[in-house]
Design a binder for these strands. Structure first.
Length: 718
DNA sequence: AAAAAAT
């Protein structure tokens, strides 16, 4: 074996490959240093002479030469340059009126294409050009493309967006949604002030979109809906000289957004954001959160959202967490974990401020989407407590994250990959962390993040508080628990892993030839149903079969374009299509309220998958039924799985017409196939803009702006 | 088999 792997060698023939690999030391460019010319990472692109650099013109007419970011940052910060000020101010809401002034600078950079490349490589504009050229030979165009990719035209950002499929659509070729999505969305660097304002000032359409993005089935959406209203009135805002530009009322300027908003509304499945009172709220005497010993400000802030009774996991966890104990919490998303760890952490941090680059609390979450959810749900509370938080995750600009860290962040919310990256860059130092939270630890373990998590936790000082949340506790998680938790108090929403009381389980052993009809009958019921299949192909097939039987169903899997996924989810959430046939892409992380039945047309691979799939229903206290179809040869496996998952249910033989099926809500199907053209309309109910066949330039423009264009690619049916 | 995380 010594003469191993010639292939690999051939592939890696060039020395610069090695140099270009992640192995190279990263330069802590946040400190305003330009990597040395021979630096392995930074030196990839030669530096063009200043006069060769592309020039852009700022709004005010001055030229921006696309300076290197190192200089820019270094130079500007002490001078009170806006970039930094703005960033941090943003979070407090004190900046908007001034956006315009640097719209010319930053936003132009960004819009100019490849601003991220700027950020990331520090190479400024020119290097970006170069690389684009290299890659695609397309110069200009490719640059655009890359920008898009990076922003989540690319699929990796899916998750982050999660529910946010809409944003993707809207963005089309656009950049702004990314801005919003990124946590710098508060950075307000877009030249389009309104948009920024919208978001923070509580412009309705934007709220809604934001909710969407978050996949908001989660309760916190509701809170968030109105939260901006709340925190922008906080004392900090006043201190920062916050001046509202727009009220909740829309101005005529906003008509464009308004139109967009209407379209969004059609898609919005968050029916109505909970109304947030801006009046002073009296905290009721029996307020459950107050009883847990939380600071009044937080309790009051929650009450303002109408949140006054803690969920079980919150009730169980918060007192211990407040007492500084390590906590091991079992509970799925939707059980209120975020507040369970968020509230005590914020309470503990309040009253002090972190030093630059040294956050005092860290929340580690497996996916970007989740990170956003956590960040967004905690936002109002963080503000009320006078703290600063930051979301740090992949796919987002480094600049905002680094700048915020430089400025000081109290509560850092991160996905493992990016956090490790930032650690390498010394953009963040974890030696002041007092509270560490691992959310969805099992998920992280499943995704192979244990090394990253270990790396991070090893940098966190010992003796700090650790909170670990996980839906299941198996090997990977146990390793983390053993290693990092000291004498933890264990809390579960319920002892049996699966079981929310409100969840009913049926495991049906069926004849193969009955599968189709049983699937259709179970799916054909009132309310929303998620059908799980093992493969993408299977999902497509089952969805088609359902439609042939007269059930409005659409497939969702990782093989679809982002745009297509958006449409499917949008249609599902609004109820236009009540049945979602999905692979495990939807098993985790996608939150949709009001799913009353989960039907597993193919059994899950293991009990963990079972629990995650099941977790799509019975969310937040609602009732839900989980029906699993097993073929006779899968019976044994299902028995074992049921045991492992802590279910009482056992496989039961079933055939069409059986009572068991009715108990699961099965209803006979019409048998009248759904017309494919109608189905398309259900998926995307606003094809009005495109009558013109392949679409002229105008159609292309309008369409592309809001919709990913998945549909227009295909031939038009009907 | 599918999905996810840094580029």
């Amino acid at each position: 074996m010594p003469a191993k792997n010639p292939n690999k060698k051939a592939r890696w023939s060039a020395a610069e490959k090695a140099a270009a690999s992640t192995k190279g030391p990263k330069k802590p460019y946040h400190r305003g240093q330009k990597p040395a010319d021979d630096a392995p990472r930074g030196a990839k692109r030669p530096v063009r002479a200043a006069e060769d650099r592309p020039r852009r013109v700022r709004k005010d007419g001055a030229e921006d030469q696309g300076q290197r970011r190192w200089e820019r940052r270094e130079d500007t910060r002490p001078g009170g340059f806006r970039s930094d000020d703005r960033r941090s101010d943003d979070r407090r809401g004190g900046f908007r009126s001034d956006d315009r002034r640097d719209g010319g600078f930053r936003s132009d950079d960004r819009r100019g294409g490849g601003f991220r490349s700027d950020d990331r490589r520090g190479g400024g504009f020119r290097s970006d050009d170069r690389r684009s050229d290299d890659r695609r030979g397309g110069g200009f165009r490719s640059d655009d493309r890359r920008t898009d990719d990076r922003r989540g035209g690319g699929f990796r950002s899916d998750d982050r967006r999660g529910g946010g499929f809409r944003s993707d659509d809207r963005r089309g070729g656009g950049f702004r949604s990314d801005d919003r999505r990124a946590d710098d969305r508060r950075g307000g660097f877009r030249s389009d002030d309104r948009r920024t304002d919208d978001r923070r000032g509580g412009f309705r359409s934007d709220d809604r979109r934001t909710d969407d993005r978050r996949g908001g089935g989660f309760r916190s959406d509701d809170r968030r809906g109105g939260s901006r209203e709340g925190f922008r009135r906080g004392p900090r805002d006043e201190r920062q000289g916050y001046r509202p530009r727009f009220d909740r009322e829309q101005t005529s300027q906003d008509h464009h957004q308004d139109a967009e908003a209407e379209r969004m509304e059609a898609d919005s499945w968050v029916s109505a954001a909970r109304t947030t009172t801006t009046e002073p709220v009296t905290v009721a005497e029996d307020n459950g959160f107050a009883a847990l010993g939380l600071p009044e400000r937080l309790v009051e802030r929650l009450a303002r959202e109408g949140i006054s009774s803690p969920f079980p996991i919150q009730e169980a966890t918060i007192p211990d967490a407040l007492a500084g104990k390590d906590v091991l919490g079992r509970g799925q998303t939707g059980s209120g974990k975020t507040l369970a760890f968020g509230l005590p952490t914020i309470a503990r941090l309040a009253g002090e401020r972190s030093k630059p680059r040294r956050p005092r609390a860290l929340v580690l979450v497996p996916t970007r989407e989740l990170a956003m959810q956590v960040s967004d749900s905690l936002e109002p509370l963080v503000h009320v407590a006078g703290l600063r938080h930051k979301l740090v995750a992949g796919g987002l600009s480094y600049t905002g994250q680094i700048a915020a860290l430089d400025k000081g962040v109290d509560l850092l919310i991160a996905t493992p990959g990016r956090l490790v990256d930032l650690l390498d860059r010394e953009a963040v130092i974890l030696d002041s962390i007092e509270v560490t939270i691992l959310d969805e630890a099992d998920h992280m373990a499943d995704m192979g993040f244990v090394p990253a998590v270990t790396r991070v936790l090893d940098e966190v000082p010992e003796g700090g508080q650790r909170l670990l949340f996980s839906a299941t506790l198996d090997k990977g998680v146990d390793t983390l628990v053993q290693r990092y938790l000291v004498d933890p108090v264990t809390h579960s929403t319920n002892d049996a892993t699966a079981s929310v009381d409100t969840m009913e389980h049926h495991i049906l052993v069926i004849d193969p030839q009955h599968k189709k009809v049983i699937t259709a009958e179970v799916a054909n019921r009132e309310g929303r149903t998620v059908v799980f299949c093992r493969t993408k192909l299977g999902a497509d097939r089952v969805a088609l079969q359902l439609r042939e039987s007269g059930v409005r169903a659409a497939a969702l899997h990782g093989g679809l374009t982002q745009g297509a996924r958006n449409k499917v989810l949008g249609a599902f959430r609004t109820g236009r299509i009540p049945v979602l046939v999905a692979t495990d892409v939807a098993a985790r992380g996608i939150h949709v309220d009001d799913v009353s039945v989960v039907l597993q047309a193919d059994p899950p691979a293991d009990h963990k998958d079972y629990l995650h799939r099941a977790g799509r229903t019975a969310r937040a206290g609602e009732r839900g039924t989980v029906v699993t179809l097993a073929l006779p040869h899968q019976r044994k496996m299902m028995e074992r799985m049921a045991t492992d998952a802590g279910l009482e249910a056992r496989p039961v033989k079933a055939a069409p017409g059986d009572e068991v099926l009715e108990a699961a809500g099965a209803a006979p199907v019409s048998g009248v196939p759904i017309d494919e053209a109608d189905f398309r309309k259900l998926l995307d109910p606003r094809p009005a803009r495109r009558h013109g066949g392949t679409g002229g330039p105008r159609g292309a423009r309008t369409g592309g702006q809001y919709r990913g264009g998945g549909q227009r690619r295909g031939p038009r049916h009907g």
